[in-house]
């Protein structure tokens, strides 16, 4: 039935303008329908493909939904203990300075249990890339409250909404690490629309190019959805993300080439 609209005359290899990069392993991703992880994986692998550095890249996956990232990314990878990816990356980059090294971490991994490793790797100015997927919830373990869960947001461990008085405030790790002299490029992106995807890929390219300069950490936060954890359809979760996550976690570059871009006064809160 779909084939009734097929334009067989142009379905030729030479006319392919976009296809899944072979640097993604040819197997179904384990993520929920509509989850941003898959898009970030693809942009990451496209970046490595375009830079032709598949053989020079060592990646580190976290604990969380993307614990199995190494099954999908066709590069050599290590699976770290929860939160410890920046420690692994530190040692690897120091002993293999010519390799391209990145960590791929979620909000629980990077901003809760791995806060010390994150801050200190950034502060030492280690020369690798940190990719930080922030969806404001623990997805893998079943939708518990994360350090980045918004005020009032419901999760399985904040069933009446996050009460900042007793549960603390959402942590803006990206603004925090931008203050450290060891970070060189700090940005916050998203992957829910074509333009956002393009910008994320541009940021990834810049981050990996920075590694050639030996100038410190490139830190890319991707604000993403968790439709399972948020209990919404994928399309609705992206809308909710725009309306609620982006005011608290505004998109854009925070630090470029070692300089703070614009010290944004972030005052908006979810629901306001």
């Amino acid at each position: 039935m779909e084939e009734q609209f097929a334009k067989l005359d142009i379905r030729k290899d030479e006319n392919i303008v976009y296809k899944r990069t072979p640097l993604l392993v040819d197997r179904p991703l384990s993520y929920c329908p509509g989850c941003g992880h898959g898009t970030v994986h693809r942009m990451l692998m496209e970046t490595l493909e375009e830079m032709d550095i598949q053989d020079k890249t060592i990646g580190i996956s976290p604990v969380g939904c993307s614990v199995l990232a190494y099954d999908f990314l066709n590069i050599d990878m290590l699976g770290a203990a929860h939160g410890r990816a920046p420690a692994l990356a530190t040692a690897i980059k120091r002993m293999w300075p010519d390799k391209f090294v990145f960590t791929y971490q979620g909000d629980g991994d990077l901003a809760a249990i791995g806060t010390a490793e994150t801050i200190h790797a950034c502060n030492r100015g280690e020369n690798f890339v940190i990719i930080f997927i922030n969806n404001g919830i623990y997805g893998m373990t079943g939708g518990q409250m994360a350090p980045t869960t918004l005020p009032g947001m419901r999760s399985s461990t904040s069933p009446y909404g996050r009460d900042e008085k007793t549960m603390g405030h959402p942590l803006r790790m990206t603004e925090l690490v931008a203050q450290l002299p060891g970070t060189y490029f700090v940005t916050r992106q998203a992957v829910h629309t074509p333009n956002h995807v393009r910008r994320t890929k541009k940021a990834l390219r810049k981050a990996f190019e920075n590694q050639k300069l030996n100038v410190g950490i490139s830190f890319i936060e991707v604000v993403s959805n968790c439709n399972s954890g948020w209990k919404m359809t994928p399309v609705n979760s992206n809308k909710w993300m725009e309306d609620n996550m982006f005011p608290y976690y505004p998109l854009g570059d925070i630090k470029v080439d070692g300089k703070i871009v614009e010290p944004k006064a972030v005052t908006a809160k979810a629901g306001e």
Binding site: I10, Y18, P28, H192
Partner: peptide
């Protein structure tokens, strides 16, 4: 329908990377 322009938007946002785009 057959109004595709090959803009790649769908393929870019597809989390599972299941869309191949042709343009001529």
């Amino acid at each position: 329908n057959d109004t595709c322009t090959g803009c790649m938007n769908c393929a870019l946002v597809c989390p599972d990377g299941v869309i191949t785009v042709y343009r001529a």
